[in-house]
Amino acid sequence: MKVCGWALFKKDLLVELRTQESLWISLLFALLLTVIGSFCFPTTNNLAQLWIPGLYWLIYIFASTIILTNAFRQEQSEGSLQAFLLAGVSAETLLLSKALYQWLLISMIGLILWPLFAVFYQVPIAAKLPRLILILLLTGIGFALLGTFCAAMLRASPLRQIFMPLVFFPLILPLVIPAIYATQSVLADQPVRGLEVILSFDLLFGALAYMLFAHLVEG
């Protein structure tokens, strides 16, 4: 399982490096939303630290959903998901390798967003970056697992671009709310709050996705 999962992860990474389909589109989209945000909210007063965490996570949700929605696009168009299962790859290995790959991509988006916020919104992040990255990586686990799960569910639907946010957003909200609080507390130089909810979500939905994924791909 370990070797197989690693090979699948490397395959996804190689395809992305060669085609550069998801990451660049998503990054450009995140940049665009950051620029639009600068026109929507005042950036010059002290209130900025109240709305900046919310805006950061809003852009993160939108940008990562673009990546997550297409998690199984290639497998679906080539029919390779069935081929993997026929070759004896377990559904759980597929989920974990795919989620790890998605986690890597969406974490990169989140990482690049912070310097963008530092430049466009004058957020002083230098000293706070390790804690912000910790929140980002922990939140990313739940995002990647549940997002990969929803993408697998909707992979065959021609309407998946529409259905993905409708299904994914309400389910992911209990993860986004503590992430916003945790980010707010870090930016306000307070002890980090909400990490226990983020970890609970990661564990609960990680376990559920792991248990139910076989039903999803094997029907």
Binding site: L173, P174, L175, I177, P178, Y181, R193, G194, V197, S200, F201, L204
Partner: peptide
């Protein structure tokens, strides 16, 4: 989880 996180 929703309830707990919103209770923040």
């Amino acid at each position: 989880l929703i309830h707990y996180s919103v209770r923040l």
